[in-house]
């Protein structure tokens, strides 16, 4: 089969481009350590979240030195807790599940973004920086009032976080 020399050159460039793209993504995984939402959590009974230790009264709790777990329930049409308050300069793992349909969990303008599928718990760990307020929105169509489903993720200073946690009686 005759292939023109220019076409062979282009074929080689194309394969290099593809390997470069795969290489970049691999670098992102091992360099900055970006991990994908995956199957680390066990499935959960979506209609009986009230019986779940973590999701009956979802909130933020400290799980290690400067490490926090934020449990979030998405529902038609909102997020609990709202706002989600987390401390600055810390490692926060979001555990997000749905008690009804499929939702999205997107902290607007950031890389924190995941699908929320009933029966599954999505986990994503992020490093927070300085105090800042972020918008939280559902980016998967979930019913007639989908556009009204929003919340906040407030990154606050350590001291403010501690006083808030105390104020909640926790």
């Amino acid at each position: 089969m005759h292939i023109h020399a220019y076409e062979k050159l282009w074929l080689a460039c194309s394969v290099l481009l593809i390997l470069f793209l795969i290489g970049t993504v691999t670098y992102g995984a091992v360099g900055p350590g970006i991990a994908m939402v995956a199957d680390s959590e066990q499935p959960i009974d979506a209609q009986n979240l009230d019986e779940s230790e973590r999701f009956a009264d979802p909130g933020v709790e400290q799980v290690g030195e400067n490490e926090y777990a934020a449990y979030v329930v998405a529902y038609q049409f909102g997020f609990t807790p709202d706002p989600i308050v987390v401390p600055a300069n810390s490692t926060v793992t979001f555990y997000v599940t749905s008690r009804d349909v499929t939702h999205g969990f997107e902290v607007a303008g950031t890389n924190a973004n995941t699908m929320v599928i009933p029966g599954e718990v999505a986990t994503l760990t992020v490093e927070t920086a300085e105090p800042q307020e972020y918008g939280l929105l559902c980016n998967e169509y979930c019913g007639a009032a989908h556009h009204a489903m929003e919340g906040k993720v407030n990154v606050v200073s350590q001291s403010e976080f501690e006083s808030r946690q105390g104020g909640d009686g926790e």
């Binding site: 194309s14 481009l17 593809i18 994908m36 939402v37 599954e120």
Partner: peptide, 26 residues
């Protein structure tokens, strides 16, 4: 970004997807 699907499966899918660029580039 689906929970409940292992990262390895996602990576395999990405590799196939990237090679799917080839016929379009050709």
């Amino acid at each position: 970004l689906d929970p409940g699907i292992a990262e390895g499966f996602k990576f395999i899918s990405m590799t196939n997807t990237m090679f799917l660029l080839l016929p379009s580039l050709l």
